[in-house]
Every structure is written in C-alpha cells, then in structure tokens.
Amino acid sequence: MKLDRTTIAIGVVTVALLAASPVLPKWAMSLLNVSLCYGTVVLGMMLLMRTGLVSFGHGLYYCLGAYAAGTVDQMLKLPDMALMVAAGAVVTGIVAAILGLLLARYRDIFFAMLSLAFSMILYGLLVKSSALGSTDGFNISAKTLFGVALVDDARRYAGFGITVVLTTLSAFALNLYLRSHRGRLAEAIRDNELRVEYMGASVRATIHLHYVISAVLAGIGGALMAINIGHIDPEMTYWPQSGEFVFIAILSGTGNVFAPLGGALVFETIRSFAYEYSPNTWQMVLGITMLIVMIFLPGGLWSLIQRRKPA
C-alpha cells in the first residue's frame, strides 16, 4: 500500500504532539485535549456531511459515549481509561445501528430534525434520572490505563496520550476509508443518489454504515472528553452542543481529515480567548467569526490551505 501524504502527516503530528507534551504549557495541553475530543466528533460529522447529511443531534452520541464511560467508572467500578473509551464506542455503535435503521431513510432537514428529536429525548431522560444527578450530572475519574495505576501528573499525561493516539488513529482510519472504494461513494451519494443506485451500490446501506461510524466517533470523543474533563452532564446532548459540532464542521470544511481537527482547535482557541477578553460579548465574537468564515471561506478553513495547492 502506498502511503499518501495525509497518512504521513498524521504520523508526524502524532509523534510531535506526544513529544511536545512535556514542554507544552498546561493550559495549552488542556486546550489541545478538548480540541482533539471535539475534533474526533467532528471527524464523524465530516463523513456524514460528505455523504450529504447533517445531524442536528449528534450530541446524542457524544453524550451517550460519555455516560457509557461514566457508567463503567461509577457503576461497574472499573475506572480504566481504555475500558471507558471502549464502552463509549460499543454503546454508541449499538444504538446507532438500531436508530440508523430508521434514520437511513431520511434526508436533508428531516434527517437533521429527527436526529435532534432523539437527542432531546435522551436529554429529557437524563434530566429525569435523579440517580444520575439530573442536570448536575456526576464526576468521574479514570484511575488506570490498561490496568496500570496512574497518579497526579501521570493521569494528565495518560489522558492526553490516549486522546492524541485515539484521535489520530481515528483520523488515520477515516482517511483510509475515504480513499477506499466505498468511501468514495460518499460524495457520489451527496451529488445524486439515483445514479449511485443505478451503478449497483446500495445508498441506504452506505448511509447506515456512515451513520454508525460517525456515531462511534462521537462516542469515542464523548468518552475521551469525560476522561479529560472529569465531569459529565446532560448538557452534552442539549441542542446547542449539537449545533456547535455542526458549526465546527462547517468552519473546518470537509476537504481532508485534518480539517475537523484543525477547525476544532481554531474554534476552541477563539472561544477560550473570547471568554477571557470579552466576557460580556463572547457570543457575539463567535457569531461574527462564523459569519466571516461562511461569507469569505465557503469551503471552510481547509480551503485556505487547499487554495495554495499548485495547479
């Protein structure tokens, strides 16, 4: 198999991030951490968007992944990072496989809205569950990684490490998939489903598969976020959270698997500095940034990089 440039770059970034972690300022590390978790979720959004679908309810899987991780920690008393992420991936995969049976029939705004309805139903269920802390949620703390006990700083580095590795692995796998025969169907489906059907490919099966992949990525992102933040609550499936994922995906563009990761980092950085320097009007700063990107960079931030590509 020939290595493409994206694959090589993913490898370089992984190594660079891991190598840089000891010298990174702590705030930068947590900023990167959060961005990578968001980035993983948006990777999935990107796959859906390439297929022509936008979910306004992806918070559903982000939140489910986090609560699955929380359940492993709190109810099963197995506070292992790897187990928590695995639980997040498995639970979201199963739920998405079931809901996907239904959702794969939907397109456009109806797909978006039905996803939103499901995410809000989960929100309602979690708010009703006093045992899970209702809107306050609960704290979780991952204490081991593959059974190795972690204390103090080791925990932070392990959290960062597992986030970097899983995010870049996801990006690597997705990149591979997008270059595969089936992966290339995504854009064909977006452009014209009928032609894809005439070619003999199943649109519905492909959409179902992409829905499950994107859900699992969101579940992994949610579980990683739960590990890094140490707290989960139903806000993760509330509609503004889902809206934020769509926002980052549009901001990023769908040109390359690096786009969601970079987009998430840019978004988190803007938000964090807006909170700090403009505490009363940070929403306005975000809104204006968003408008500027959509007006001047219709292809997202990635088009900035792509444009310079020699013809």
Partner: peptide, 30 residues
C-alpha cells in the same frame, strides 16, 4: 464542560492566585 476548560485557563494561563465563583451546582461539582 466549558467551565472546566475555563477554570484551567484561569489558573494556568491567567495565573490567578485564588478562584472565587460558581453559582450553578453542576459547575461546582465539575
């Protein structure tokens, strides 16, 4: 989730000596 990030920013980037705040129970717990 955002409050945890902002808390880290406050402590690690702004380098405050002491933090006072939080009205929401979920934020306090987190």
């Amino acid at each position: 989730t955002k409050q945890v990030s902002e808390y880290r920013t406050l402590v690690q980037r702004q380098d405050v000596d002491i933090v006072i705040g939080y009205i929401g129970s979920g934020d306090c717990l987190a």
